[in-house]
Simulated assay, not measured.
Amino acid sequence: MTPRLQPLPLQELRLLGEGRHWPIDQPIAGLASLTPVRGQMRAIHHGTVLELEGSAETIITLCCDRCLQTYNHALTAKARELLEIAVAGPEEEEVVFAAEDPVECLDPGSSFDPERWLFEQLSLQLPLVNRCGADCPGPPRPTGDASGEGEGDPRWAALRSLR
């Protein structure tokens, strides 16, 4: 059984020359998935930069924005990121980073939470518009008598109840 992802102090990670590798096979807090998140990730402490790399996959249930039916969606993420580790000291100077340089800054006395990082990477892969597929039937068609009092689109039920 794969051990659960736990926060790791940056000072402890710094002592690991080869960094830390995590096999992943667990649910991730805050991510409602049908299957455990599976994959791998690693973190290497390079003094002033924490190098993170990982890939993961799971299946989630989404609601189609068009027809309101639920459907399963394969969610995958593959990411590589550099996080700056702040250097404490009075002679600290401002550094301007290039586009590929780290933009997030960690406190050297803090911990790195691999589960949180993984949650963020998977969340970034969620679709902006949920569509169940190319054969989506679209919004429900109105049914009923000619007066238009039929069921119709269930999203309008709250307004119909105000009559």
Results as ranks from 00 to 15, higher is better:
C132V: 11
E104N: 07
S123F: 10
T58M: 05
F97D: 11
K78T: 12
P142C: 10
T70H: 12
R42S: 12
E120N: 12
A86P: 00
Q125Y: 03
G152K: 02
A29H: 05
T48Y: 00
E12S: 05
H21R: 15
P23D: 13
R80N: 06
G30N: 10
L52Y: 12
G17K: 13
E104I: 03
I24T: 07
L5G: 03
G144A: 04
C132G: 15
N72V: 07
T35S: 15
V103N: 09
P36T: 13
G150D: 00
E151S: 02
A56H: 04
Y71P: 09
P142M: 11
A98G: 15
L82K: 07
W156D: 03
Y71N: 07
L16A: 10
R163W: 02
R80A: 14
R131L: 15
T143Y: 00
G148D: 01
G39K: 11
Q26C: 05
Q11E: 14
E84K: 03
R163S: 08
V103C: 05
A79G: 02
P102T: 07
W117F: 13
L50D: 06
A158N: 03
P7Q: 05
P102M: 09
A32I: 04
R42C: 01
T58K: 04
T76H: 12
Y71I: 01
T35A: 15
V87R: 13
A134M: 02
A43K: 10
V103R: 10
G89D: 08
A158S: 09
L15A: 14
P114K: 12
E115F: 02
R131A: 14
R66F: 10
E12M: 03
A158T: 05
L15V: 02
C67G: 13
L34H: 10
A86I: 01
I24Q: 09
G148W: 00
E100T: 13
P140G: 08
F119G: 01
L52A: 05
T48W: 01
V87Y: 01
E149C: 00
C132A: 13
G89K: 06
A88G: 01
F119L: 15
T48H: 11
E91H: 09
A79I: 12
A146S: 07
E104V: 03
L50S: 04
C132M: 11
L62A: 14
V96T: 09
Q121C: 12
L122A: 11
S123M: 14
P27G: 07
V129L: 14
S147T: 04
A56R: 02
